Amino acid sequence: MTAGRFIHYTLNFTVFFLVQVFIMKDLVLFGTAFCFLYVFFLLHLPIETKPIPLMLISFLTGVLIDLFYDTMGMHAASCVLLAFVRNTWIHANTPTGGYDDNVPPTLLNMGFGWYLTYSLPLITTHHLLFFYIDNLGTELYLPLVIRVISSVFFTFVLGIIIQMIFYNKKRGI
Rank of each mutant, 00 (worst) to 15 (best):
V19C: 14
V19Q: 12
V19M: 14
Q20K: 08
Q20P: 02
V21Y: 14
V21H: 15
F22V: 13
F22D: 10
F22K: 09
I23L: 11
I23V: 14
I23N: 10
M24N: 06
M24C: 15
M24A: 14
M24F: 09
K25H: 10
K25W: 09
D26N: 14
D26C: 12
L27H: 12
V28L: 07
L29E: 15
L29H: 11
L29A: 12
F30T: 15
G31D: 08
G31R: 07
T32D: 08
T32K: 11
T32H: 09
F34T: 08
F34E: 11
F34Y: 06
F34M: 08
F34H: 07
C35R: 04
C35D: 11
C35I: 11
F36T: 04
L37R: 13
Y38P: 10
Y38F: 14
Y38H: 13
V39N: 05
V39L: 05
V39R: 02
F40I: 13
F40N: 11
F40M: 15
F41M: 13
F41S: 04
F41V: 07
F41R: 01
L42R: 07
L42G: 11
L43T: 07
L43S: 14
H44Y: 12
H44W: 06
L45Q: 15
L45A: 10
L45W: 03
L45F: 06
E48P: 01
E48C: 02
E48R: 01
T49M: 09
T49L: 06
T49G: 15
K50W: 01
K50S: 09
K50H: 12
I52Y: 02
I52A: 02
I52P: 00
I52S: 01
I52L: 05
I52W: 03
P53Y: 08
P53H: 07
P53W: 05
L54A: 00
L54K: 00
M55A: 09
M55V: 15
L56Y: 08
L56P: 08
L56D: 00
I57Q: 04
I57Y: 03
I57G: 01
I57F: 04
S58Q: 04
F59Q: 03
L60V: 08
L60M: 14
L60P: 02
T61S: 09
T61Q: 02
T61R: 01
G62V: 04
G62L: 07
V63S: 06
V63P: 00
V63F: 04
L64V: 10
L64K: 05
L64G: 13
L64N: 09
I65M: 03
I65T: 02
I65G: 04
I65K: 00
D66E: 00
D66V: 02
D66N: 01
L67F: 03
F68G: 12
F68L: 07
F68T: 08
F68Q: 11
Y69P: 00
Y69F: 01
Y69N: 02
Y69E: 05
Y69C: 00
D70G: 06
D70V: 00
D70W: 03
